[in-house]
Design a protein around this nucleic acid. Structure first.
Lengths: 179, 179
DNA sequence: TATTGTTATACTCTATAACTATA
DNA sequence: TATAGTTATAGAGTATAACAATA
């Protein structure tokens, strides 16, 4: 680091530059944050979320609900409990979501004869159409990520992401697999 | 826990088993979801969030606020606007957070003479102590991730994560971040 | 006019605990 | 007793728009 300022004019220039840099989020010292996975996971998650939303502008369904729709579409007859687990969310979080999807005629809930506590979830035709539409958006978003990451690194990256999810969830399930 | 299925209940037993498998989130077909970065980013983010919270149990500060504290600690005198940018959140989201941190005597807000619209943020001694404490928790969490990912892959992974953030944000900034 | 931070407000996502209706 | 789903409720986190003070 240079510590000599030759002229006042240069110092001013440098200061202005630093200010603009700060405004652009350069020159902010993140400290250990800059080396922590969790911090960047948060940023990446929200950036990806927003990018998908941009891709799917005009389609009125959030990424989270899209995932819900997809899981139902791929697993017709799935129960709410199983769905909530696939989504890693509490079942109570699902109730208002499914209510909404049902009200919009995107899904149906069927009471099976053999267990009348549960529901079997399935897409309606229009739910299926919306799913197709969103899948196309997601594909586009995904190709975008491919361009950013590169196909080879992408495979590695996804694999690691999955590993992190699996191991952390395993450790976090009720039983402390904690040290 | 042991469940023996006696007599003519084989079908039932198999059904129960399938049910347990589904309950464990095995056998759920995620379709394209299983190959989408965004989906696993969400899961990884929330798993990491929870793991950190477990690590920092007893310390009353969320990961998000920890990041805020860290940025202030590393950049004494930073303004709220610059902080909100470093955090990729709107400045209005910051107001209640900073109010809370100030009420708890973890940060101070100083009005600089030369621009009395802004605040200069800094940690109090006890804010600094808490930051140290949380940093230790985060280190532990991080070593945990190291065990999961492996140090070499970890570097790659983080690099990719950063690239994704940079590129997606660049594309998504309504106002071009350049110039 | 532009910028810094606040206010008012609202929306999404999520969880916990108690509940119901079945099983 | 145990399980599937709902209700009631609460809280965190976030954003938009209008605003006051200051530049």
């Amino acid at each position: 680091m240079t510590e000599l300022n030759i002229s006042g004019r240069e110092a001013n220039g440098a200061r202005r530059q630093a200010k603009r840099a700060a405004a652009r989020n350069v020159d902010i010292d993140l400290g250990p944050l800059d080396n922590w996975i969790g911090f960047y996971l948060r940023l990446a998650q929200s950036a990806s979320f927003q990018a998908f939303t941009r891709e799917a502008r005009g389609v009125d369904l959030s990424p989270g609900r899209f995932a819900t729709l997809m899981i139902i579409g791929r697993n017709p007859g799935i129960s709410q409990t199983a769905l909530s687990r696939a989504n890693a969310r509490d079942k109570s979080s699902l109730t208002p979501v499914l209510e909404d999807l049902e009200r919009r005629r995107l899904i149906r809930r069927v009471r099976p004869k053999d267990d009348r506590r549960s529901y079997q979830l399935q897409l309606t035709p229009s739910g299926d159409r919306l799913l197709q539409e969103l899948t196309a958006c997601a594909d586009k978003h995904d190709r975008n990520l491919d361009r950013i990451i590169g196909p080879r690194e992408r495979a590695r990256f996804l694999k690691t992401l999955k590993k992190v999810v699996a191991k952390l969830q395993e450790g976090g399930d009720a039983n402390g697999a904690d040290e």
